[in-house]
């Protein structure tokens, strides 16, 4: 779907009406998907953040064939990274996840009133594609942050590396 200036304005007006009617509260507070959490405690992510990131990783970097590496483990690694990151980086990323899953923002900009994490796979891909090629620089920046984190953390798993034929360091060096 293309997003021209008129569309933005019309949606903005419609959003204003919704705001006035109290509908914004309903949309803005629509909950994220619930997913099974890892047994170990999360350090930086809330359960909602975990669900959103799991969807992002699954869509951006689907695992190669026949690897035990999982997107769920990837999100656990991301949680560790974020816990060790500086506060500014961590807060920026958590806010980005919140914006991605915010039904009100999605509705105003894209006409999508379901939180990202609750969409089916094809619809999630469509949302990410809109962010990836958005005319709004901030959305493109957000997409880049998410995909890079997803990709670098998925392929940090030696099992994922083996699945693509990477032999790892030469044996016996250390």
């Amino acid at each position: 779907m293309t997003l021209d200036r008129r569309t933005v304005l019309v949606r903005g007006l419609w959003g204003g009406l919704l705001l006035a009617a109290g509908g914004s509260t309903f949309l803005a507070l629509r909950p994220s998907a619930r997913v099974e959490l890892p047994p170990e405690p999360l350090h930086a992510l809330s359960p909602a953040h975990f669900a959103i990131l799991l969807a992002v990783v699954t869509r951006c970097v689907p695992p190669p064939a026949s690897t035990p590496a999982t997107c769920r483990d990837t999100v656990v690694r991301l949680d560790t990274t974020l816990a060790q990151a500086d506060a500014r980086t961590r807060n920026d990323l958590l806010r980005l996840l919140g914006l991605l899953d915010n039904a009100l923002a999605g509705f105003l900009l894209d006409g999508e009133s379901t939180p990202f994490s609750r969409l089916d796979a094809a619809a999630q891909d469509a949302v990410l594609e809109r962010w990836r090629l958005s005319r709004f620089a901030l959305r493109r920046t957000g997409y880049q942050a998410l995909r890079r984190l997803a990709a670098t953390h998925f392929y940090a798993d030696p099992a994922a590396q083996r699945a693509i034929g990477y032999p790892g360091p030469p044996v016996g060096v250390q």
Binding site: P63, P64, R147, A151, Y155, A156, I164, Y166
Partner: peptide, 25 residues
């Protein structure tokens, strides 16, 4: 080109990303 560096550098998404990674060698 090592996997983490390469995975974060390429611009492919989804299945196309997986395919590019599988061609790394």
């Amino acid at each position: 080109l090592h996997p983490v560096l390469f995975a974060g550098a390429i611009t492919a998404h989804g299945a196309q990303h997986r395919e590019a990674m599988e061609h790394l060698g």
